[in-house]
Amino acid sequence: MKLRDELPVDHHLASVYRYGAGFCGLVLLAFAALGFADALSPFDTAGDTIAGMTTNVALSVISTVVGLALLGGAVIGGNFASTLNIVVGGLFFLSGFAHVFVLDRPANILGFGMSNVIFSFVMGLFIATFGMYGRVSSKLSHDNPYWAARHPEQAAREKTAARPAPAGTAETAGALTAAAKPVRRGRR
């Protein structure tokens, strides 16, 4: 199954992926802009506080790159935006876990504080949810292309059952013959 082939371009889920990527990208770009505006030092491990979180120029650069990537995904849309959201959300989770272990240590080159770790987990969950919406569930509707890809036999049966019988088949001929017979009323 190739993900880029599964959803039609105009599928309603594509707008969820697109708007989610765009919104999260704008949030990251706003955080990065605030970090750059404060003229921070590149690898200050103490970090200055911006919007309740500690930051430095290195973190602002990473936030800019990821924010622009998410905005790019929003422009492209579709399955690309969905897959990008899932990957970026997972990376935010990994970043949160990694930075829990380097808090208050010299290895904390991005100047993370506990509020950054919590933000990383929350933003990762938010971005990944936008990416997985309509793709990951136990109760996907049967018209969802991801459900059809996971249940090809049942999807083929449902598609065949929903298709009208072509003219000239035995079923159609029998139905036409029965409809053409005159209806007898009363006794003879």
Rank of each mutant, 00 (worst) to 15 (best):
L3Y: 08
D5P: 00
E6W: 08
L7D: 04
P8L: 04
D10L: 07
D10Y: 02
H12S: 11
L13I: 07
A14I: 02
V16A: 11
V16F: 14
Y17G: 00
R18D: 02
A21M: 08
G22R: 13
C24T: 13
L26Q: 04
L26I: 13
V27F: 08
A32T: 11
L34M: 14
A37W: 07
A37I: 02
D38E: 11
D38Y: 01
L40W: 01
L40H: 11
T49E: 13
I50P: 00
G52F: 06
N56Y: 10
N56K: 09
S63P: 01
S63M: 13
V66N: 00
L68N: 04
A69W: 13
A69H: 08
A69S: 14
A69F: 14
L70H: 08
A74W: 15
V75C: 05
I76G: 00
I76S: 00
G77H: 02
G77S: 06
F80P: 01
F80L: 09
A81K: 12
T83C: 00
L84I: 04
N85V: 02
I86Y: 02
V88N: 03
V88M: 07
V88R: 02
G89Q: 10
G89W: 09
G90F: 10
F92M: 14
F92R: 06
D104E: 13
R105N: 11
A107S: 15
G111R: 06
G111W: 06
G111Y: 07
F112V: 10
F112I: 04
G113F: 01
G113R: 02
S120G: 11
M123Y: 11
M123V: 12
G124P: 05
T129F: 12
G131P: 05
G131D: 04
M132F: 09
M132D: 01
R135L: 07
S137W: 02
S137A: 14
K139G: 08
D143W: 05
N144K: 04
W147F: 05
R150D: 13
R150M: 07
R150P: 00
P152T: 07
E153W: 03
Q154H: 06
A156M: 03
A156P: 00
E158M: 15
T160A: 15
A161F: 04
P164K: 10
P164H: 08
A165K: 15
G168Y: 04
T172S: 14
T177W: 14
A179T: 06
R185K: 13
